[in-house]
């Protein structure tokens, strides 16, 4: 997806390329429809009692993660991106999880809060 032939190049090659993009367009529309469906599902699930609020939060976050994953993989082309981008994101993901997880750990390690 990164290196389209320039418009001035061989028309045949361009035709092929445009066809490739056309295929992607179909994928985008499908993912869009999927996201809308999942939005409806999230709303619906929030009115179902899964026993505890924690369970409800967990399920809603799972659906949200699926949606976010679809956006990131398809719309943001992360399904087929260059290695450098993955590297940047792996570190970011690691540190943002560290931020959540370590603060959470510290939180529950304060004797006064127990």
């Amino acid at each position: 997806m990164n290196n389209p032939p320039d418009i001035s190049q061989d028309p045949k090659e361009y035709e092929e390329y445009a066809h490739g993009v056309q295929k992607h367009v179909r994928a985008y529309l499908m993912v869009g429809a999927l996201l809308l469906t999942f939005t409806a599902i999230t709303v619906a699930l929030s009115y179902v009692d899964f026993g505890t609020r924690k369970a409800n939060i967990g399920i809603a976050m799972l659906v949200a993660t699926l949606k976010a994953g679809a956006v990131a993989l398809v719309f943001m082309h992360l399904a087929a991106e260059k290695r450098l981008i993955y590297r940047i994101l792996i570190f970011t993901g690691f540190f943002v999880l560290g931020l959540f997880w370590l603060i959470l750990l510290a939180w529950y390690d304060y004797p006064i809060f127990k």
Binding site: G98, L102, A106, D109, Y110, P111
Partner: peptide, 20 residues
């Protein structure tokens, strides 16, 4: 990125996180 709480020993966190 994973050493920052050593500025916060005085806040009274417990031994597990301190050790980390």
């Amino acid at each position: 990125f994973i050493v920052w709480a050593h500025h916060m020993w005085m806040t009274g966190m417990g031994s597990a996180v301190s050790a980390f």
